[in-house]
Computed example of a mutant assay.
Amino acid sequence: MTQLFLEQALNGLQFGLMLFLLAAGLTLVFGIMDCINLAHGSLYMVGAYFVAAAAQAADSFWLGLGAGIAGTAVLGLLLELSLFRQLYRRDHLAQVLATFALILIANETVRLIWGPAPLLLNPPEALAGPVEIAGFFYPAYRLVIIAFGLAVAGLLYLLVAKSRVGMWVRAGASNREMTEALGINVRGLFTAVFVFGAALCALAGGLLGPLLAVQVGMGESVLILAFVVIIIGGIGSIRGALVGALIVGTVDTLGRALLPTLLRALLPADAAATLGPALASILIYLLMAGILFFKPQGLFPARA
């Protein structure tokens, strides 16, 4: 039981850090630009397809990952210049409708280019096996994902909390009008933040591609979790996105792994098999409701 808990805790850490890569860009776009981007999950999907296609063409996972991130960043730049600059001035309803239409367009475009079947993305051969940790074996590739997530989290902390650009980002999240009055190029800042968020989506999609199926519509479910993360952490807050992602990833993973087992000790097997997955799937939403009851603006709101 202890080994199972430790293994699932590492899985939760890995999943939470990947959610952070998605939520970091999303919370900056939402917090600074006041733009609801439902197509953020589509960038995650397109990034995964770019990485998988490039990895197959180059016969190298790492080359594919770099090419996929670069391609998705360029796509994010084109989207920001052509569409999102028009949406910043619109109300939230227009943003929701436009970005929802973008989800449908992205899904159908990916289906036309790569077909309806999932695209295969294999991890590097050197990381395909397990390593021993505290008496149990754990996949080496998942440890690399955790290392990537921690490295990006540290880089984002230094960028947002310690650099001049980060000061502008935090100022824009707190008071956009005052930031513009101080002479900051808010339009260029918006573009840079959006492109950076798109690149993080591709990084998450490429790293998770060998673990999850690279398929059409893969971004919708993870987008919901990303919104839960930024609501729990506080809109516009990188620190909140990290804490919220770790909470959601850990609770979701441990809930799905351990809750059915615990219920089997209390209920008949049939009832536990039915009730366990249902309770596990709503656990993070109950957690979100509980946190918002006591802290309606999230744990670390940017405008606190």
Rank of each mutant, 00 (worst) to 15 (best):
F137P: 00
E180C: 04
A199T: 10
V144P: 01
L150F: 10
G149R: 07
W168M: 13
Y141F: 01
F137L: 09
F148L: 11
G183F: 08
E132G: 10
A171S: 14
A199W: 11
P130K: 11
L127S: 06
A173Y: 06
F190Q: 12
F196R: 11
G188N: 12
S174T: 15
V144A: 13
F148D: 03
N175I: 11
L150A: 12
A153M: 11
E180S: 13
R176K: 15
P123T: 07
C201H: 08
A151M: 10
R142G: 01
S174I: 15
L189K: 03
F190N: 10
G183M: 08
L203R: 05
L127V: 02
L203Q: 05
V165N: 00
P139G: 02
M178L: 15
A161R: 14
F194Y: 12
V195C: 07
E125S: 15
L150M: 08
L182Y: 08
A192E: 05
Y157S: 06
G188F: 11
V186Y: 10
L182N: 08
F137I: 03
E125A: 15
V144F: 13
S174M: 15
F148C: 14
F196A: 15
R170L: 11
R187L: 04
S174G: 13
A204W: 10
A192F: 13
N175S: 14
L189T: 03
L200R: 08
L127F: 09
R142T: 02
E177D: 14
V131C: 03
V165D: 00
V131W: 00
V131I: 12
V165L: 14
R142I: 00
A204N: 10
S163K: 05
R164T: 05
T179D: 09
E180T: 05
Y157Q: 08
L159Q: 04
L156V: 07
V131D: 01
A171V: 06
Y138Q: 07
V152C: 10
E125K: 14
I145M: 12
G166W: 00
L155Q: 05
L121D: 00
Y138P: 01
P124H: 07
P124I: 02
G135E: 07
M178T: 14
E132L: 12
L158N: 00
W168T: 02
V193F: 01
Y138N: 04
A140H: 01
S163H: 02
F148Q: 07
E132A: 13
G188L: 11
A128S: 14
A171N: 06
G166V: 03
V165G: 02
G149Y: 10
A126M: 06
A161F: 12
V131A: 08
A171Q: 05
Y157C: 01
G129S: 13
G154F: 13
